[in-house]
Amino acid sequence: MNDDIRPNRLLQALAYGVAIGTSLLFLYPYWWMLVSAFRPTRNILSAPLRPWPETLNFQIFSEIGRIGGVDLSTYVVNSLVITTLSTALGVIVTALGAYALVRRPKAPGFSLVRYGFLVTIMYPYMLLVIPVYLVMFKLGLLGSYAGIILFLALGPLQFFLFEQFFRKIPNEVIEAAVIDGASEWQILTRVVLPMAAPITATVAMITFLLNWAQWFPIMVISRSPDTYTLPVALLSMNSELGSNFQGIMALAVLTTLPVALLFLFAQKRVMEGMAAGAVKG
């Protein structure tokens, strides 16, 4: 845009000041967490503001090797397994479901499925988890990985992103395939899925980030800490009396770092995807 008002120098300096100041305030908790993970608790007590650790000592990660009677490595593996499998399952199930609902919106029963899903995502999530406990009990899935993974599979953002994408596929593309004699299965696997590769990658990335952060359903469905993930372990460690402050910060680092790095690696995809998924909702 051609504008004859030259940005005022003072205003510009002010804008940078606000932007930099706010950004640093938003990032400071990460820095404090990281520094505190490397400082003995008594040192933090005497100087909470020290901007870097006295020494770079990784000792704490072996000190928190067992939390609540379970190996730290178990929580790490649980986090990886539960997040990966629920993401894979969620992407496949949601993509197929959204595709069918978009292609045949008037098929008997389909609008019921859609409304059922929309009502579910309106229900206060934390209060949904409570009756889910009863359902898991009735299905015999309480305390199982299967129960946790199945529950985490569906999410609103994922569904809206796929629905939005499939709606934008021009009818002509599909009709051309029909005229060429392709079956619905062939249309899906040879026409639609190749087109859907980028959106699938976006949805998978976002689902992974969201499911990694999950804690309440995992805590409720679990029968023992053996199926806890990192956030759940962190929460139970934080609730203990006489907290090991340094250990809590080290565990918070372990919980945060993988997804923070993954996000920075795919930031454009994640931010654009989340904005697009929300705008549909």
């Binding site: 952060a213 804690w215 962190l234 934080n238 945060t256 997804v259 923070a260 996000f263």
Partner: peptide
């Protein structure tokens, strides 16, 4: 960044 940071952490 805080949006994708696990809320518990």
């Amino acid at each position: 960044l805080p949006v994708i940071t696990p809320d518990v952490a």
